[in-house]
Design a protein around this nucleic acid. Structure first.
Lengths: 141, 141
DNA sequence: GGATAAACGTTCGCATACGAAGGAGAGGCC
DNA sequence: GGCCTCTCCTTCGTATGCGAACGTTTATCC
């Protein structure tokens, strides 16, 4: 008996996760392009709106981000005028992060953008499936 | 009434996908390190074992990979002696790709490594949940 | 047959990712 | 105070990831 029709890679969950992530990201990336923001930079802004004045270490923990990666993202966000990096008066090792005016002005818009991107991503699933999928992903991370 | 306890980012499926992918990848990456292979390079090898003599374009389609990204990966795999790049005699634009002896020697080992990594990743789920999760991811990509 | 279009792979530029090392500062301990 | 350690952030090196432009080669169309 010949082997079943080839689906060698689809059976690799790691691969499926990578590709699902890839497909989920692309449309969001396109929507952010007019703002000159990347998805990562948008994520950082949302993290700062969650709690202003965080240190880079705190933000990295919240977003599960390597500090080395975050360093570069913060520099570009700061140079583009989206955030302010202020030295902590009490601890000179620490930088505290705040959304700049430019970010505040676009806040509602940018959050709505993410909400819509997520809704469109999940549109193929029923509400029950959506809940289940989120729980699965949550268990994985 | 105060807002519910903060879970601002977990409700973002795009974020969850990114982090689930991140967590799934890390252990596999560690296991591959002794071989001097990255997860991406391992994926390319599996793609070639699936069908030898593919062109870069075909392989890119199979693995859902940008040709620009693939180009660099193939160059490093070739330099490390994992694959052979042979010009197509009939079409001088095309390069055909073959696993090298080094790859053939490690083939069983490397496939087993991926199988184990996937099993461990899915260990927290019941068999039914595993099937469901894969279907969800498949629908996303 | 000759111009135009399309396909293939490479290269460039920019932005993640992350391990590893490094410099500056803060805190504990004697 | 002086030493050790730990933390915070930055920097470096390497590897994706992908849009865009490029040079080569092949296919198409008139």
């Amino acid at each position: 008996m010949p082997p079943p029709p080839n689906k060698p890679l689809p059976d690799c969950t790691i691969f499926l996760l990578a590709k699902a992530y890839q497909k989920a990201h692309a449309p969001f990336k396109q929507r952010l392009a007019p703002y000159g923001l990347t998805t990562m930079q948008h994520l950082v802004l949302e993290g700062l709106w969650h709690a202003e004045g965080q240190t880079a270490a705190e933000l990295g923990k919240l977003l599960v981000l390597d500090k080395a990666t975050l360093s570069g993202v913060l520099e570009r966000l700061s140079e583009a005028g989206w955030i302010d990096k202020r030295p902590d008066p009490g601890d000179r090792r620490v930088v505290r992060l705040y959304p700049a005016r430019r970010a505040e002005r676009r806040k509602e818009e940018l959050i709505a953008l993410r909400t819509r991107a997520n809704e469109e991503l999940l549109a193929v699933f029923s509400p029950e499936e959506q809940v289940l999928l989120k729980r699965f992903l949550w268990d994985l991370m």
